[in-house]
Design a protein around this nucleic acid. Structure first.
Lengths: 150, 150
DNA sequence: CATCGAGTAACAGAATTCTGTTTCTTCGAG
DNA sequence: CTCGAAGAAACAGAATTCTGTTACTCGATG
């Protein structure tokens, strides 16, 4: 990255990588949320179901780590999914007590449709990116994500 | 992007571009927030000050569009910055009345330090990206950001 | 068997951002 | 001059996520 001029006025947020990542995340996040809304899901719920489908059974703490939220934020989200019979809880609940959840058949069906939407959203043609550029973008993001995985 | 197998179990969130953008945004956003905390600023406040420095004077609605938040979310943020004498309001406040703000000298000073931190955060060496890769990532993000600018 | 540390979940409340609605200003058209 | 449309800000409350703390489980160790 070329050195920027010292002059404050010349500084541009377009040169701040973090600003651009967050701003594009806002755009693509809202874009996916809009598309998933037809299923009554938001991107985090989609992620939770995707992890449960893949892992079989996960606790609140494990799900929180997987979707990068705090366990306190995940608990009410799971309550909502449970209320809609998309997941079910296994065993007793209580402080200190592991409380795993599993996806239900209804959850798997909703997830199936969500996958179609999520993968279609990979196409950023509407946002001026070619397929090769989307792939490169994903590769760079994954490199960061995997390097910073907890 | 290669076709994915039909099997649900084979699907991986690593293949969902939106998921990766949002997850990396979370990481770099928190990373920048951590670094800016020493100035008592968060990334949005930094962005607001940067736009004010550049544009001179902006209304709540204009700032909201610039930082991609709702005006209702920006108003209390501006109240906070005003309380710390980093910005000042121009003219009277009221419903329907344009209420521009300007950055103060103290705000410019804080912004000066924030710029150093924000640009240093462009270095993603700690997240396994080379300088060329960071530049390419920024280029791709900017392409999306500018194509989707309101 | 007792103790302890790590990890998990619950509890409480703050921070941030959103949606929806109402009230007002401003400006251009007729 | 009047009126209507567009835009701006205020108001109210919901949704989402966070920080901090407390209470508990569970497995390893002595």
């Amino acid at each position: 990255m070329p050195s920027l001029p010292d002059s404050e006025a010349a500084r541009d947020l377009d040169d701040v990588l973090t600003w651009n990542v967050v701003r594009v995340a806002r755009f693509v996040g809202n874009r996916l949320a809009g598309r998933l809304a037809s299923l009554g899901l938001n991107p985090i719920q989609f992620g939770v179901l995707a992890f449960l489908e893949k892992e079989g059974e996960l606790t609140t703490a494990e799900i929180a780590r997987a979707v990068l939220l705090r366990p306190q934020s995940v608990a009410p989200l799971l309550d909502g999914l449970e209320g809609r019979d998309l997941i079910c809880r296994v065993g007793d609940r209580g402080k200190g007590r592991r409380n795993p959840v599993r996806i239900t058949d209804a959850g798997s069906e909703a997830l199936e449709q969500a996958w179609v939407i999520a993968l279609a959203a990979n196409d950023l043609g509407d946002a001026a990116l070619s397929r090769d550029e989307s792939n490169e973008l994903n590769r760079l993001l994954l490199k960061i994500a995997l390097a910073t995985e907890p």
